[in-house]
Design a binder for these strands. Sequence first.
DNA 1: GAGGCGTGGCC
DNA 2: TGGCCAAGCCT
Length: 357
Amino acid sequence: MVGLVRDAEKIARLRRQLLAWYACNRRDLPWRRSRDPYAIWVSEIMLQQTRVAVVVERYQTFLARFPTLLSLAAASEQDVLALWSGLGYYRRARMMLKAARFIAEQRLTGLPASSAALRKLPGIGVYTAAAIASIAFGEAVAVVDGNVERVLCRLEGWEFAEGASESALKREIHLLAAQLLDPAQPGDFNQATMELGATVCLPRNPRCLVCPLAADCRTKGEHATAPRAPMLSREGAHALSIRTRRAGQQVLLEQRPSSLTVMPGLWQLPELKQTEVPGHLLRMTVRHAIMQVNYYVRIRNVYEDELKSLTVAGGARRWVSLAEAAAMALTGLTRKVLTRAHLFEVRPREPLNESQS
DNA sequence: GAGGCGTGGCC
DNA sequence: TGGCCAAGCCT
């Protein structure tokens, strides 16, 4: 399977073409302007299973609020989650905070500088350890993420065989990535491969005409991808209420119990039963996907004096101003509803929520 | 090792 | 409209 090892010339050519392409085509992303290992770390955690466009916005805000590892270590979990609100996979934020506190408690000067040491920190797996080590510290270790897998499989014509173990192929991919890696500039090489996968060697419609590796590619983009687990799409439905005080501009939020596996500790609008949002009170409907479930959520207003007659669930509750709410660890759905209801807009004169029934 | 963990946007 | 993702990690 590994046929490259004796072909030093081909390896040199691939490196040269990839790096030359990257030098001209790299996107100007904020974390590429930093050499700070902490900043690289933040970007890599945020980028896990998350689109670049979303991360670009959040990365700057996060670093402005927590500019150093020590400032993060001193933060409360709720403050960190508040900045993570809407990004999803909230465990990432919790683990990053945990790692920052661990480093601070050990009185270390910063992140460990080797991939092996990084790997021991919570939230840093094989990929992230290699990414930080190569990009921030120049360690000659290859990264393998979804992009690299796709690029190398297409390059070599490797396929995920039906029913066969994926681990053998994954091992080959790691070996090949390690062979190709340019030890002189591992950070750039790794980012170049990922960038190629993200912008040229696309999953569905690869742009082979502009690919710097096309001449050496065995598939020209034609290759079977790994069989995906069939996505179940269930329909769920529940209702949320925007509960407002008539006098003050406040909403009622409840905190999800810390024992939950999904979004523990985050704040949300109180839930209602479907029947408690009849059509004439419906303010809006929001589609919101949580994992593999599409929820069609019905929203109504509930004023404070109506609360007693409606469903009451357990959990901590707080009346908060909209400014406070905007700064809290809201679930993505709640943030979406409050934004879409224009509650986060500054409209001083307008009485809140009385425009519709 | 498979399943759990979020979300906004794209087609 | 609704299915399908996108720079993984943990258990």
